[in-house]
Every structure is written in structure tokens, then in C-alpha cells.
């Protein structure tokens, strides 16, 4: 556990030293703030003390930002060869992958924490559904976890960051909307399976304020799968010259 934290701390310091973290925080807060308060179906248009619009904006902005954060996590180390140094230290592949996952997750959590003033403002305007808001944040965190694990996996496949970014977006797109679209257009068993696979279904049910174990299991199992597959992809060095 300590080793995971040491790795995560270094990754975080890279995020901040290389300005990625600041750019990402500013863009995220800018986008979500703009659409929550100023433009489109913002809070004043809806006229309710609800953060629903914020959650649906964050749902999209995080989808695009997370691959940009995760793309370098493993691809960069593979390109520069530092992965060799890292893995010959007294750490396991799993600790490395988990440390990297944790760093991106903490950065996203920080970004979400910076939106707490929204919560305070809205709750002072009117009667806010506190439980619903908490569930919305939980949903965003879980969703971020899923996309980070997908991004990490994409990053473990290649040594090119752009390829990692696009792969992560491509895989993410299926969970984000394509499964949902397919679920709507196909009936019967197949349709049901797509509905279960669709992330938006689970996200909506959580952000409505309903915490169902089915949804939690969905999010957690994709996260575990993504992290596991990254580990597998890392261990591929044993059979080739990767």
C-alpha cells in the first residue's frame, strides 16, 4: 500500500509540475461552470435548486478529459524506457498500475472537490436535495474510475500517447453512448445486454439518487477489469520485445 502511494504521489507531482493538472482543472471548472450557470439549460433557466445540469455537463467533460490525463501514464514510461527501471525496483506490476490509477483518480477527485462552491451556492438559493447531490458526486467518481481504468489500459497497449488517447476515447465511446443507442434500437435479450453494458444507464440511476448494488458492481467490475488488463498488457514484455 505504501508503495502504491509513493508511485501515485510521484505521478501527481508530474501532473502538477507539467501544468497538465492546472490546464485540466481550469478547463474542467470553466466548462462545467459556464454551462451550469451561464449558458444552455443552466440552473436559472430550469429554475430549480438542483445540480442536475452540472452533473450532465461533467458527465461529458470528464469523458474527454480523462483520456488526456491517462494517456501518458504508461505509454510515456514505455517510450522512454523508464518502465524498466520502475519495474526492477522492489515493486510489483500491480502496485505500479494501481499507483498510476490512484494518481489520476485523486486528480479527478480534486477537480470535483473544487466544484463544491456550486453546491454551497445552490443550497443557499433554495431547497436542495442533499442526498441526490451526494449520489451525483458518487456517480461522477465511479464513472471517472471506469474511464481512468480504460485509459490506463489503452496507455498500457502502446508507447505512443496519441494512440493511447484515441484508443481510450474509442473504447470509452462504447460505454458512454454506443451501447445505449444499441440498447434502444435492439429488442429482446441482446438489447437488454447492451442496456446493462451502457454506462449512462447506471450513471443516471445513481445520479437520480438511487444507489443500487447492481450499479456499484457494474462500475467496480469495469474498473477492476481495466486495471487487470493493464497489468496483463505490462506483463506482455515477458513474451516479446515490448
Amino acid at each position: 500500500m505504501k508503495l502504491i502511494w509513493i508511485i501515485a504521489r510521484r505521478e501527481l507531482s508530474v501532473f502538477f509540475d507539467s501544468l497538465i493538472a492546472y490546464v485540466m482543472l481550469i478547463l474542467f471548472l470553466g466548462f462545467s461552470g459556464f454551462f451550469t450557470w451561464l449558458y444552455g439549460s443552466d440552473i436559472f433557466l430550469i429554475g430549480q435548486a438542483s445540480l442536475r445540469s452540472f452533473f450532465s455537463i461533467a458527465y461529458w467533460t470528464l469523458f474527454f478529459f480523462i483520456p488526456a490525463l491517462t494517456m501518458r501514464l504508461l505509454a510515456e514510461e514505455k517510450r522512454s524506457g523508464t518502465i524498466e527501471l520502475l519495474l526492477t525496483k522492489a515493486v510489483t506490476d500491480r502496485q505500479v498500475v494501481l499507483g498510476k490509477f490512484l494518481s489520476a483518480f485523486l486528480l479527478i477527485a480534486l477537480a470535483l472537490a473544487f466544484t463544491l462552491p456550486y453546491v454551497i451556492t445552490v443550497s443557499s438559493i433554495g431547497n436542495m436535495d442533499t442526498g441526490g447531490v451526494l449520489c451525483g458526486y458518487l456517480g461522477l467518481l465511479l464513472m471517472s474510475g471506469v474511464y481512468i481504468s480504460i485509459g490506463l489500459f489503452a496507455s498500457s497497449l502502446t508507447r505512443n500517447q496519441i494512440v493511447a488517447f484515441l484508443t481510450a476515447l474509442f473504447i470509452g465511446l462504447f460505454f458512454h453512448i454506443i451501447f445505449n443507442v444499441l440498447a434502444g434500437s435492439i429488442t429482446g435479450m441482446t438489447g437488454k445486454i447492451f442496456n446493462i453494458l451502457s454506462l449512462s444507464t447506471h450513471f443516471e440511476s445513481i445520479s437520480r439518487g438511487v444507489i443500487d448494488t447492481k450499479d456499484l458492481i457494474y462500475f467496480l467490475s469495469i474498473m477492476v477489469l481495466g486495471v487487470f488488463l493493464s497489468e496483463v498488457a505490462l506483463s506482455k514484455r515477458n513474451i516479446g520485445n515490448a
Partner: peptide, 11 residues
Amino acid sequence: LPENNPLYLEM
């Protein structure tokens, strides 16, 4: 010490 000495250049 690996070949080509890979290091985190930004650190």
C-alpha cells in the same frame, strides 16, 4: 543501470 540510462527527465 539499464542500457541508455532511462530517467524521468522532468524530475
